[in-house]
Design a protein around this nucleic acid. Structure first.
Lengths: 325, 325
DNA sequence: GTGAAAGCGCTAACAC
DNA sequence: GTGTTAGCGCTTTCAC
């Protein structure tokens, strides 16, 4: 094998491959040349078995795969993860969590088949994986609601800062009576976006009573806007916690003869199809999903390597100006 | 370990785990019970090393990940692959093909790190992977154009049958002068969809001269339709090889005062956003991407297991009737 | 800094 | 049908 060609022992080859500092420059050179010449690729299985590391990271996907993949946000996150990992020795494996047999997934994960796991929390409470974090490096993408493990590694979009930014934008553009349609209040993103809105209103001494809860869907936005208008309290600006809901709300405003942005200015979140193609196009907060994916992977790799990492990593967001304000 | 608890040898445990037929029922039972009790999970690395199989399948993704993931078609295919694989012992790993160093990917694949590979051909010629198929089980999703390996395992949508179906539908609805906007003629899908259209026209003795080439984008469809109308030859039906192109073409028809379907009936392919949300919604061919993904994975697993598989597996498509005819 | 030797946990011949 | 014996290809102490 390589050792023979390079004129050293297998141990030295191993040291070179693993970038050990205790090798002379000449040895490194000889081995590198031999590797190149022979087109040598280390066998993962043997490496894993001997080193007790797998160089494999699992991305756990909820069984109801269809919904998961249908969300372009997740596609982008996965993309970011994969891109980051391609620059490392780690390999990404997609693991479908069987809901019928959750033990299967848990065992696989804990059976030493992966060095770490990535959990993208999909619109709900994932406490099962919080348990997992006790025996395996785990990083959550998006904050899980579960109370039990307040102590997890999390990479999330800074939802509070984002809604502050979006709401402040309304204030900066002269709006004085500002409403909101929130996301579900049993989701972290829903709570945080409401919180940011409240902060801005408090700072500007604006009443924060015009609140209706939505469910992140167009239908939910429609219903919430209907209720809001039914109160009979006029408002000239609104922060809607997702572009999908905003799309639903727009129709209702139109029916009531309210023009956007003339009568009501709108800012929202998610720079998605709805934000871009509504009439008018919506001023919104872009969540850089790819960046988030890369960051999640980076944090996990650092965790695996025993480096120090902050428990909470917040990804900054960006405001995209369009015609709804 | 398990062997001790079950009161048998490690070999027998191994046989049970690998479902060997040469074990008595009692032994199977004892071992299964012991496994259950101990929560034993076989170590992948050790298994791989000893058996020289990895139980891993690579899904090769072109480096320009963004475009890849942006296409919902691929997301659905991956989903199908993952779903199918979750019912087997195989694991899916996402492999990003570095364009800067294509050798890296090739070596990894040939270095015995995977049992097989899935190549989703992304709108272009992928001959590099055709080579790969000589040393590793490889299945292509979508037919690669490369001439070199006429001999690959391929799972594809039946594009010819689909365009036959779509074009025949126009004929069946009384259209007699039928045009087409094709896909790029350097892509298999583009060629096949044109071929199906020609067949139907030939069978019905309709002239097949009204052809313009597009590039599967709305802009391309717009340009092609403009050229088509500029010929000054009237037509009452058209098969457009993708819904995106159809969306572009619709605008041009409108500007020329031609109503759909009154003046020109349209059938197209891809049951995507464009097909559903154009005005009018388009009668189109649905390509079951999830099914295709599952089938690709199934074929690969059979190939790995040495079972007989057809070289070409065609996935049937379905016509969705909407208001454009 | 480098080599020798001892496994990592499992499967695969081979006897029995 | 089952146990025994060797490794799979690498990393890792441990001497030197």
């Amino acid at each position: 094998m390589v050792a023979a060609v390079a004129g050293v022992s297998r141990s030295t080859v191993s040291r070179v491959v693993n970038a050990s500092p205790r090798v002379t420059a000449e040895a490194v050179e000889a081995v590198t040349a031999a590797i190149e010449q022979l087109g040598y690729v280390p066998n993962r299985a043997a490496r894993s078995l001997a080193s007790r590391r797998t160089f494999t990271i699992a991305l756990v996907i909820p069984e109801n795969t269809a919904r998961f993949f249908a969300d372009p946000y997740f596609a982008s996150v996965i993309q970011g993860v994969a891109m980051y990992l391609s620059g490392t020795d780690y390999t990404l494996t997609l693991l479908i969590a069987s809901e019928a047999d959750p033990e299967k997934t848990r065992r696989y994960l804990q059976g030493g088949n992966v060095d770490g796991a990535l959990i993208l929390s999909h619109h709900r409470d994932d406490r099962s994986y919080v348990q997992l974090a006790r025996t395996l490096p785990v990083v959550f993408g998006g904050r899980p609601m579960s109370q039990e493990g307040p102590d997890n590694y999390i990479v999330d979009v800074d939802n509070v800062a984002a809604s502050v930014q979006a709401t402040q934008y309304l204030v900066d553009h002269g709006r004085r009576r500002i409403a909101t349609i929130t996301g579900p209040q049993n989701m972290a993103a829903g709570l945080d976006r409401l919180e940011g809105w409240r902060r801005v209103l408090a700072q500007n001494s604006i009443a924060d009573d015009l609140v209706e809860e939505g469910d992140f869907t167009p239908a939910g936005g429609e219903a919430a806007m209907t209720k809001l208008l039914a109160r009979g309290i006029p408002f000239d600006g609104i922060f809607i916690a997702s572009a999908q809901m905003a799309a639903g709300a727009l129709g209702v405003l139109g029916k009531h003869g309210l023009a956007v942005p003339r009568d009501v200015a709108i800012t929202t979140m998610d720079n998605d199809y709805y934000a871009k193609n509504s009439t008018p196009p919506l001023t919104t907060i872009d969540q850089p999903a790819g960046t988030q994916g890369a960051k999640i992977a980076e944090v996990l790799v650092q965790l695996i390597n025993g480096e120090h990492v902050e428990k909470l990593t917040l990804i900054p967001t960006e405001l995209i100006e369009r015609e709804s304000v």
